[in-house]
Amino acid sequence: MTKPEFKIYDVTLRDGNHALRHKLSLTAAINYAAKAAQCGIDYIEVGHGNGLGGSSVLVGESAHSDRDLISAVRNAAPSATLGVHVMPSFATISRDLIPAIDLGVDVFRVAAHCSEADTTQTQIEFLKSRSVGVAGTLMMISHLNVAELIIQARKMVQYGAEAIIFMDSTGSLTPSDVAELISAAVSDLGVPIGFHAHNNLNLAIANSIQAVNSGAYSIDASICGLGAGAGNAQLELLVAAFEKSKMNTGVSVNEVMRLSINSLITEFIATPPAASPYTALTGINNLFSGFLPIIQKYSAAYNVDIVELITALGGLDLVAGQEDQIESVARHLPKND
């Protein structure tokens, strides 16, 4: 096979952890990482859904520490590029980044809400000085227009980010939105561009293909779509779609289908995520996909209309990590009859 011009980044063991309420088991992580590497998947990300230091009452407590998850995957897939997601809201250099470097993490994707890129400066500069791979990640990108996103991304490039990942954390974008953003980013930023889809509107595959056609270098995907809310681009389907278009992903189609079939029957993916009226509503209201289980919980607990609750939350411009606001809003809505 020819060398791929783009790469599929596997976020099953990180974003997928949202779908597992952050309870990913070490056994599942080890089995999955070893098999994924055998399929030709080079980049494997692992950790709490909110990244290093994410384990909390606020967004969910991990079944296993970052240290244990990273060590397990590092050993299971020694030749893979091992990545982690980092949000300065949750992770610090001394408590989280240094131990992760010592455990052999190769790539750190330092993430901020799309308008707050300057919160990543300290950590990007630190990681750059430690000679590990460092990417800047803008999350919740549906909250800004393309010109504003480029300004934020430029800051991360200035701090030393070697790539920029755009995360449609709310699953709100359409293929034409993706084309506009990725084309602008590729021509402006001078570093490899990545795209991370969520499937709220059933557009994750279409958006990911569009991102590659617009010049993206890396596409985030997860097996069975395992990810927050409606999930991510479904990795095995994405590989098949690229194969049909004669675009080389470096991943074996048959092997990745086996991986998916086996993952489905193990305990670790009980119910694959799917687009639904609820994910469509959070998508068009620009709400973080990971909010949905909590929205459902408090809609039931306070007996309030879920459409009203999602719409009310959509008016607040919430960022990922404001899960605590959901309960407060639900509490004050009128009760169902």
Binding site: S56, H113, D317
Partner: peptide, 13 residues
């Protein structure tokens, strides 16, 4: 554990 969340909503929260 301490967590800091910065919200850009206008009007400010």
């Amino acid at each position: 554990k301490a967590i800091m969340i910065i919200n850009p909503a206008i009007p400010p929260i």
